[in-house]
Design a protein around this nucleic acid. Structure first.
Lengths: 189, 189
DNA sequence: AAATTCTCTTGAACAATGTTCAAGTCTGTT
DNA sequence: AACAGACTTGAACATTGTTCAAGAGAATTT
């Protein structure tokens, strides 16, 4: 139902009718609507993880191109699973309740896809620094995908968006490498 | 009320009590809750626009550093106006209703802050291309701010986030420039 | 001054929706 | 056959956006 009509199209009564039970019975399967949404999110993250792994597997490209591939794959996944992907970020826990552990753990797993090629590119950097860079890279690409698929502003056709993302990821990596080399040259001239 | 308790903390009855009228009377001031939220959003965008203009005004820095300043200012504005800023992006129009013109126009205005320095940096590019690059740059920075201020994952202290943003913006611009020079050299060697 | 008309206000009522719960139903065990 | 435990049901409750008929007030007309 989330995939079809979005998070706001998920109603307990419709859900109960669809699975063939009384509306109250939904609460035997799930504590909350929050839990249901997080469980669906967990599946979505798993599928995203698989898509990213598949994208990495083909050929033996440079770390740069691996990162570009990951970004493009993320974009495609979001486009093909628009509502489910949106549900990952639109959902807000109701006040005072925090995300359970099993859900938080899912999210961290994804960063390793970015972390590994980054570590190859920047062997001098420590784990913390790499983690932060990975998160920044992800955030930047995520922003492009999020606002790009939001047809609110100028509607960008998907192929153009993919090109933009690829270009900007390459630019970011080039810039990061140049910056690293410059600071290296300055440190040991 | 949005600034205080967030979009989900805005209730018509509370609002009516606060302004001292019956709950029904709210609908004489505003068509909808949608309209109210968009009107608040309009004010927020105006204040953001002013903050960006102020940031540009000081000194006469290079276009690169202007773009970095803009990004940092955006980050700071989001941090200082967290709920109002979130409301800009969290709000979804109820199905089938489209954003009125006066609201859509507000959003476009902001891109000129990015567009102008970019046009200086890349005089060869056409208006369309610059517009797309501007939007990509904004999206990337927005993503970093959005996920950075979302304390859900690893909590990043604000100064560190600002540094990350500055670094990545510089890297992106360096990369874009290098890329432009390379294609220029290939075109006319 | 009285009457009329127009607008604004009020608060009840409606509809949608997440959640709870007492009563009923079913299944398996004693 | 009797009982216990679990599941199911559908009504009921609370919250919330929205509508609306009735009333209050002010301005204009007679």
């Amino acid at each position: 139902m989330i995939a079809g009509r979005g998070l706001s199209g998920l109603k307990t009564r419709d859900l109960a009718r669809e699975i063939g039970c009384a509306n109250g019975a939904v609460y035997n399967l799930v504590e909350d609507m929050d839990e249901l949404i997080l469980r669906v999110g967990s599946r979505t993250l798993l599928r995203l993880d698989q898509a990213l792994s598949t994208a990495e597997g083909a050929g033996e490209p440079s770390p740069q191109e691996t990162l570009v591939r990951i970004a493009i794959t993320y974009c495609d996944f979001a486009a093909e699973n628009l509502q489910l992907w949106r549900a990952l970020f639109e959902h807000r826990m109701e006040a005072g309740k925090l995300v359970p552990d099993w859900s938080a753990a899912d999210q961290m797993q994804l960063f390793r896809h970015i972390y590994v090629p980054l570590a190859t590119l920047f062997p001098k950097r420590g784990a913390d620094e790499l983690g932060i860079t990975a998160r920044s890279l992800f955030s930047a690409v995520h922003g492009m995908v999020a606002l790009g698929l939001e047809q609110k502003l100028v509607a960008v056709p998907l192929p153009a968006l993919r090109e933009e993302i690829a270009g900007l990821v390459r630019a970011m990596i080039d810039g990061l490498i140049a910056r690293a080399e410059r600071s290296h040259a300055a440190a040991a001239p």
